Simulated assay, not measured.
Amino acid sequence: MTFGAKALELMEARGVSMRALARRVPIDPGHLSRVLKDVKPASADLARRLDEELDADGALVELVDERLAQATENGLQVDPAVLDRVTDMLAATRRLEDVSSAATVLPTVREYLSMVTRFATMARPSVRPAAVGLVSELHQYAGWLHVPMRRWSAAERLLDRATVLGMEANDPQRTTTALSFAAYTAMRQGHTRKAAALSEAARRDTSVHPGLRTYVAYQAAEILAGDDRNAAYKLLSEAERMVNRLDPTELTEHTYWYTPAFFRGTHAFVLAKLGERERAKEVMAESLANLPDEWRTSEWAERRRAFLAA
């Protein structure tokens, strides 16, 4: 459990509001709010004060991440463990998006982006590439979050920056993901030629995670479906074979959505573009039925639910 989640749990159990707690500590309510959302790390001193006020018997002190707090104040304290901590926080935010919305988590992602950008600027040369890679991922995720809100210009700007940073960090996984998200954004706007070029670039590096390669193959099939049906069918078959070869044990907190049920929905979109509308609806219904409950009703699955209802 994160520091913020534990503090909120204790506040609810003790019947203490955030503003009342801020007065008792004392601390600025805005700062406390960011700590409770795990956007801002708690210092050891703040953890002790909150622990006392909430009668936590040391539970909050045990959860404080002093290295992350120090790194936030002094970028020269950044080390791989600090970056791993932010990566874990980002993974938790992705899970939160599954049960909420892009608008809910975007402010948190912006805070992370600001913090890690500072880390990358001030970090030692030996740590900087890893920090830049994480900045790339945060740009990439922030860009993705703008898509459901149809903020196309913001999405494109963030994804372009994510691609450049991914290349600077020499990180094929993050670079390929940024390119594929940029292709998706272009496709959603009907910019087929741009989407095709970005998708082709995303397919060039075969060293990335098998789930990402599968996603990019499906994406290329959907983009080609309107202009080159033979190529689209070939890619669709290739992507389906790739799904069957995926190993569930290889999925991580950064690739957890690359499951057969997720890809069945992607398969349905390609079939629809190829004119197989009824079959596409059958496949989409199968996909939604097999998604975990929190995914089935998530905002990112709204396009899939709408497809089935149309």
Rank of each mutant, 00 (worst) to 15 (best):
M1K: 12
V35M: 00
R14F: 10
Q189T: 04
Q189Y: 04
L36N: 04
N170P: 07
P148E: 10
P129T: 00
E294Y: 14
K234L: 11
Q70S: 14
E250Y: 07
F263Y: 06
A239Y: 06
A289H: 12
M284C: 00
G190P: 07
A92S: 13
K194I: 12
E294V: 13
A232D: 05
A289C: 08
L96Q: 10
P129F: 02
P148F: 00
R213K: 13
V216Q: 08
Q219V: 00
H139D: 13
R19V: 11
Q70I: 12
M122D: 15
S153T: 14
A217W: 08
E73M: 09
R94P: 00
L198V: 00
S153G: 12
V64S: 08
L224I: 07
V16T: 12
G190K: 01
H139G: 05
E294P: 10
R34K: 14
D84R: 14
Y215M: 09
P29K: 03
V147M: 09
D293Q: 14
S17N: 08
A220P: 01
D205L: 02
K234F: 09
P80Y: 07
A186K: 01
R14W: 09
R245L: 10
T163W: 10
G4D: 02
F119I: 08
H267N: 01
Q77P: 11
S153Q: 12
R264T: 12
V164G: 07
R48C: 09
A239N: 00
R24L: 02
D38G: 06
A169E: 01
G265E: 03
M115D: 09
D57P: 02
V243L: 01
L63R: 04
V127C: 03
T104D: 15
S298Q: 08
H254G: 09
A272K: 08
L235A: 09
M1A: 14
P29H: 03
E12Q: 13
A81C: 07
P41A: 06
A131C: 05
P80R: 04
H267M: 05
L236H: 02
A217F: 01
M284T: 06
E276Y: 09
V105W: 02
P292H: 11
S287A: 13
I223Q: 08
G166E: 06
K6R: 14
G211K: 03
V216W: 01
H209V: 09
D205P: 10
S136F: 05
L212S: 08
P125I: 05
R19K: 14
R128Q: 15
A310L: 12
Q173L: 07
R203V: 05
D205K: 04
M11C: 13
L235N: 05
A162Y: 02
L50F: 06
D88T: 10
L63Y: 04
M284G: 01
S237G: 13
S180V: 10
A102R: 02
R204Y: 12
E238L: 12
W257G: 03
A5W: 03
Y233V: 11
R279E: 13
M115Q: 15
A69C: 11
D55T: 00
L63V: 02
Q70L: 15
T104P: 03
G143L: 04
T206M: 09
H31R: 13
L63W: 01
E9R: 02
P248V: 06
